[in-house]
Design a protein around this nucleic acid. Structure first.
Lengths: 235, 235
DNA sequence: CGCCGCATTGACGTTCGTCAAGTCTAGTGG
DNA sequence: CCACTAGACTTGACGAACGTCAATGCGGCG
């Protein structure tokens, strides 16, 4: 792999996964941090519950899911991550990963050894701040998921999910009305605390109501406002 | 307030909320960080959704709840926090708090101005590491809540909740079998994604089955194993 | 001592899960 | 390149778990 290919300094995703306000000198330091990349194929796991935690990973391409496992085999999808997002933060506390990260399509990640990241962030204040903000953002995101799981009905959950997904895709240059679902109905259901049949039925209902057009994994949002109304509907 | 009273160096909760392996010199620095405390009465809010984020808070005494608000007025309790735990991490990402923190009983917190905490953690590596671990721990905790909300039935949720609560109290020197619920049934329900009636009914059922003895807010665990079995029961 | 918030319990309704049948799709191997 | 198959999806019928609504009891605080 060509060294210049793993430089943050000329990565078009830098603004997404790294702090914006670094000096040229600091950027050079950053390139020392991210020295390797890793390619994954669909269904490959980036890390697994129980794996020793060594690195955080910045997603360069592809979509991942993270999931936690219950003792009895049930599992819960805790998030879907895409380009520019960081995964592995769960491993920091005990140096062990506590969830699985699985590629939903062929993907590539930047490997960021965490001990080096910590050392570097002692010297580069902007990096330290960035790391704190990333972790805080994840905490806030999970608050939102708790709200969803704890108090929303199926239609609201799915509407919230679709709007969030398309918004994040839009931030990456994709359409605000069309998207491809990289995950199965079952994975969506696990994330939303619903069974796959309920996800399917609810999507069909949205389609009937003219809110979306569904064709397998391809989805078109026909009535954004209707989706928004569903989200803020009084139960 | 007597200055010595706000020193981490002689605080009996230090091992809970601060790193264990600080040198004497580092401990002195720590005392510079935590200069004020704040007392709250029952129902007082420590911070509110929308408040500017300035400080993290370490709980010295009392129990808090944090909750997020939906636009339509619904809310979701995201956690109950007790002595030695840190609240306010949600505010870091955008310098604005995104949830409310409410005292469930008279309480006292140590105020840790976050800009100073960040500066100090540039110099005290153990403190930096500690901050990272705290945030990661919160992320992992929330994964557990997502699993609970997304895939457990009412009895499992409540059993999980009670075991977690009594375990944390035990770590603070309290009984492993007796506890006082500082929160209402409604607050428990909000946290667990259940209605207060369901919480009440489920508690009554546990009492009927001889698993717990309930008298208002006072609760005695009579059969720990039964609770554990409920948690790991295949749905 | 009285009131108000909290809790309990019952009857009933709704939403979503379960089970099942059948179609479709995409990936695999001949 | 096509046929085959396993997984993914849809849809329906039914049931269980939990929510809703309502009545009542209780206890702590002013």
């Amino acid at each position: 792999m060509n060294p210049s290919a793993v430089a943050c300094s000329n990565c078009n995703l830098r603004e997404l996964c790294m702090p914006a306000d670094l000096s040229a000198a600091e950027l050079v330091r950053l390139d020392e941090l991210v020295t390797t990349r890793r390619r994954l194929k669909r269904r490959d796991t980036l890390f697994r519950n129980g794996d020793r935690f060594v690195s955080l990973f910045a997603i360069r391409s592809g979509v991942f899911k993270t999931r936690v496992n219950a003792e009895d085999g049930r599992d819960q999808v805790t998030g879907f991550q895409m380009a520019g997002e960081i995964i592995g933060l769960d491993g920091i506390v005990n140096s062990v990963h506590t969830c699985d990260a699985v590629a939903l399509e062929d993907a590539e990640v930047c490997v960021m050894p965490f001990d080096r990241l910590e050392e570097l962030s002692l010297e580069v204040k902007g990096l330290q701040r960035h790391l704190h903000r990333m972790m805080s953002r994840e905490i806030v995101r999970e608050h939102g998921v708790m709200l969803l799981l704890g108090s929303m009905r199926a239609e609201e959950r799915l509407a919230t999910f679709l709007l969030n997904l398309v918004e994040r895709l839009h931030a990456r240059g994709f359409s605000r009305s069309e998207l491809v679902l990289r995950m199965t109905r079952e994975e969506i259901g696990s994330y939303l605390g619903l069974k796959l049949e309920t996800v399917s039925r609810t999507l069909s209902k949205f389609a009937e109501d003219g809110i979306v057009a569904v064709e397998n994994k391809h989805l078109r949002i026909l009535d954004r406002d209707a989706l928004h109304r569903l989200v803020s509907a009084t139960a």
